[in-house]
Write a protein that binds this DNA or RNA. Structure first.
Lengths: 352, 352
DNA sequence: GTGAAAGCGCTAACAG
DNA sequence: CTGTTAGCGCTTTCAC
């Protein structure tokens, strides 16, 4: 009944039964190495003493395996759960862990986590690093650990570290081309937080040049299509990828005169917010304004959002798979495909 | 540059510098216990050897602390992320961990996880158990561990184990009373998965009697209000708490003749789906049908959903707080408040 | 089948 | 300030 919160050790059980520690260990880990009767006696004695199996930490130390995968998140953990795409990713990683009988250790590494102790104290067999800014201290800390590491999304070019991602640049070029093809020439570009230092009014070219993460890639993709064409792109920094932030930014963006005819968003989360704002303002989509996202999260389909699909949960699964099968030679880069998904939120530019 | 994936130990560093292991240990853990110069020398030698600080597992074993909190989820991890209320809870727990510099270990314990090894192998300082069915094997496994445990939501009455939850029965009575007060007498009750064995057509009374988890509590709350009144309640089992499942169930429920005038849902996730279905069917809310939820997740406000608010993230924070300050005498039960939030999704029953 | 010996890598008294 | 001594609790050759 009472688990007797007191520590009983394998040695105590061995002593009680009058066998060696090895034998007790075998009773738990190699049932075939001892007679069934002896095993039963040992287990009974263990129950008696309140011993419920080997201590996981001691076992880990001895076996050099933790049965856990570490996930280092670029955002603060609490914020990570607000971003639907991050949640999708988490789901993929969680699934992979679950399938292989391991736990998932979420390691806080948000911008406000100043020290990297949690990374150093993480008892894991490997790290998945998700969407960290370049030169992040937590990434540096992870790299000092001897376990295998896989980076997802960002930063892209860390020497010797495996990478999983999509071609964000090409993906964003696809959707930009789609929007341009519909005749839009005044575009509001809603972006998540820009890395680096910013003047008040970021413009597309500087975002494309200066952001070293996923945003920079996507901005370059947009730039590739916009090129020298006579297109006005206004950039709005939402600080993070969440619907309410997108809604707020869209409100500002759509107040401009003349009004943009398209709101192109860094992510679906932002776009979903923009859609809400359009509805609030009484603007018809796509007649009055077109809206696009990126990711194709589940809610995007319901909202009829034109977007670019990327296989987010699969990123998680692939990352864990790489962890499990350490590279033999050189760095591995897994580039997953993207696909333009046209739905009802985009249409021809109004010709006023 | 090259972290030299090879294991270097504290002892190796000590040998290299020509000091004892203690001194090297101190260099990392008690900088004030040795001269700055010696410390610098040690750190330099360590860097040289590719030693980047004490091994976390060995340290854990010695210090009897893992710097991590374990979270055991009733649903499979991958499904947990689909339930917005579960995500909110996760957020609360994550936040608490983050604030105290610990990591969060997600331990898979879904119904399909047949063995409890992950629980046994979890290197944590304590467990938060979220919404498990009664008599769950994983809960049993957790209880054999010597670390402190806090159960959230379900099961409610485990001897000696601290508990955090809300009064689901009273909460659900509140919203039922609201609906009844609006004159509704034909009600569809959308529920998440019912625990236990079921005939094809569960009815309110049997759910109230037989479900031992949160659902049972809420069903009892509904029953308390419905009482002997002349109210028809049809029960629809959605199997889990997700919008699409709610949408599907609502489609069936609203096909009944005569049509229910209110769809009362176990959760906001389900209600959000029901709302979608109502829109798809061209039914006006609340004129043609009223819809209610439970939880008050962020999306509920945006959707104008009448619901009962419960402080979900706070549940997570409180649970971790209990873990940190183990009970001195007896079991602690934290009951958080609920509040009826009336929005536009409910209105008077149509009088056909 | 079973046991003895040898650590895994680290920290915490306690002396000097 | 620094070193010595003792483990934390477990698994694993390798003999018997």
């Amino acid at each position: 009944m009472d688990p007797s919160r007191r520590r009983a050790t394998l040695a105590a059980v061995a002593a009680a039964v009058g066998v060696s520690r090895t034998t007790v260990s075998n009773a738990y880990n190699r049932p075939d190495q001892l007679s069934a009767t002896l095993r039963k006696r040992i287990l009974a004695a263990a129950a008696e003493l309140g011993y419920h199996g080997p201590d996981p930490v001691a076992r880990s130390l001895r076996m050099r395996t933790a049965s856990a995968v570490g996930l280092v998140f670029g955002d603060s953990l609490s914020r990570a759960f607000v971003d639907p795409n991050a949640v999708e990713f988490l789901q993929g990683v969680a699934r992979a862990c679950e399938d292989t009988g391991r736990s998932l250790l979420l390691v806080p590494a948000g911008p406000e986590a100043t020290n990297t102790e949690t990374v150093q104290r993480a008892a894991v067999d490997g790290f998945v690093v998700y969407s960290l800014p370049p030169n992040d201290r937590h990434l540096a800390a992870v790299r000092t650990r001897p376990q295998p590491i896989v980076i997802v999304d960002s930063p892209r070019d860390v020497p010797d570290v495996d990478f999983v991602g999509v071609d964000d640049r090409v993906g964003f070029a696809k959707i930009t081309r789609h929007v341009l093809g519909l005749g839009h020439r005044r575009i509001a570009f809603l972006v998540s937080s820009v890395t680096g230092v910013w003047s008040d009014a970021p413009d597309l070219v500087s975002v494309a040049e200066r952001d070293a993460g996923v945003l920079g890639e996507r901005a370059r993709g947009m730039q590739d299509e916009v090129g020298a064409a006579d297109v006005q792109v206004s950039v709005w920094d939402c600080r993070a990828s969440a619907p309410d932030l997108g809604a707020a930014a869209a409100r500002e963006a759509l107040a401009a005169e003349p009004r943009p005819t398209a709101v192109v968003c860094f992510s679906d989360a932002l776009a979903l917010g923009a859609l809400q704002t359009a509805a609030d303002l009484g603007l018809r989509v796509p007649e009055d304004v077109s809206v696009t996202g990126f990711d194709d999260v589940p809610a995007a389909a319901a909202a009829g959002l034109t977007t670019v699909r990327q296989p987010t949960p699969e990123k998680g699964r692939r990352a864990v798979a790489l962890l499990d099968k350490p590279a033999v030679d050189g760095r591995r880069v897994v580039q997953l495909p993207t696909k333009l998904i046209v739905r009802g939120s985009t249409g021809p530019a109004g010709d006023e």
